[in-house]
Design a protein around this nucleic acid. Structure first.
Lengths: 221, 221
DNA sequence: ATTTTCTTGTGAAGCATTTCACATATTTGA
DNA sequence: TCAAATATGTGAAATGCTTCACAAGAAAAT
């Protein structure tokens, strides 16, 4: 027979991807601490995971370790940054300059990981034209016109839940394929748009549940 | 025989608890929209889940629906709020009045879900004594003395990663059993303390991975 | 050089979660 | 009143994820 099977793109679980972020962070610290190599055991301990989990996660992407020795810290960190796509910088627009939005403009962690907020939008006339960390707030009406010419590839949405769907529709129309939403609402987007939700109340609700039910979770993110 | 088995506390998955939060939110909207009942199908559609999932989740806690009709919106919402422990208010302290911390003090969603931030702490002399939304910032040195008398049961931690572990140690010593951590670091706490992490960069990294790998995630939070 | 120790990478086993499918109960409509 | 339609609740099947356990490779020790 000519061909056995289709390319078959392997599906990586959300958990694995999140753990890659943890490994990346741990490896950054390990490098600072002067370690040249680290074992799956050592890495696991730092993030409260199991060595097998670490090895399995990494094995989805290749063989990066040396038997008897472990993983080279810097090399592995670089490899993970490639996998996650953070070996480059991303141009991000932030829509909604309220409480949360303002905080995110100044949030250094984004910058550090290569997520550069380079554009701000709001619909409030008092905010439009004002300057936040060197960026002038644009009118949200210009969203469609201003995103593409500025090479924006991601949008962080920090607007009230009531208007989030309208705005996300505009964002999608503007061709953006990745959105991080802080509004506590389930937004509808086409299948080819990646949407992640950051729902901070949800985590407090989880804590509330845990306290009330004295619940020991099986797995911890 | 006298006794068959031990009480056997059933373990609920993290995912189920998170979905309860989603159901709660959806039911709140449904009530506002004037619906008296909703089917598992209807509820599922609102949160992009399957009807079977909704029914299974709820079945862990009891039988709340009527065959042929669905679930009573208000009743189910109240029941879920009981399960999650948000049928009461929680007194929360916020430690770290930086970018994120300041935003969270004003974040109305917390208030709405019954999480009342009633105490603020910082170590910066310029911030101590200042007023945020009617709350005077206390010196972090007084953490141990001021949490218990004020009946604080949860702490939101929004301090730099470098000092987070020291502060969390104090928080634990003060008897707090539930902590929501915004610092991008893996904090060590005793087994009887519930710790949740809110890592906003992680979600951007997920989006980055998705864009680079054109990855369609299997399950979405 | 050889043995011992260490540690990876990975099928397979073990669990956990989700989905299926259907008996059962209730409502709706004729 | 009865049939048709609707929708729950739940074992069982299917799927997915984690852990186990070990062969194999490399380093360290002797």
């Amino acid at each position: 027979m000519a061909s056995d099977s289709l390319p078959e793109k392997k599906r990586i679980s959300e958990s694995t991807i999140h753990r890659l972020s943890l490994y990346y962070r741990a490896l950054t610290v390990l490098e600072k601490e002067g370690f040249e190599t680290v074992s799956s055991k050592g890495l696991a301990k730092r993030e409260k995971l199991t060595p097998a989990q670490v090895r399995k996660d990494l094995s989805f992407f290749g063989s990066f370790g040396t038997r008897g020795l472990g993983y080279p810290v810097v090399e592995l960190r670089d490899k993970i940054s490639q996998i996650l796509g953070i070996d480059r910088s991303w141009r991000v627009a932030l829509v909604g300059i309220g409480n949360i939005g303002s905080a995110l403009v100044s949030y250094k962690e984004f910058q550090k990981q290569g997520f550069q907020i380079v554009k701000l939008f709001d619909n409030d006339q008092r905010k439009i034209g004002s300057n936040h960390k060197g960026i002038v707030v644009s009118d949200i009406k210009n969203l469609a016109n201003e995103l593409e010419p500025d090479n924006i590839e991601m949008v962080v949405l920090a607007v009230p839940a009531t208007v989030a769907q309208y705005i996300v529709d505009d964002i999608v129309k503007a061709g953006i394929k990745a959105i991080l939403n802080f509004a506590p609402v389930n937004l509808k987007v086409p299948d080819d748009v990646f949407l992640r939700n950051e729902n901070m109340s949800m985590e407090l609700e989880y804590l509330s549940f845990a306290l009330v039910n004295d619940h020991i979770p099986k797995r911890v993110r």
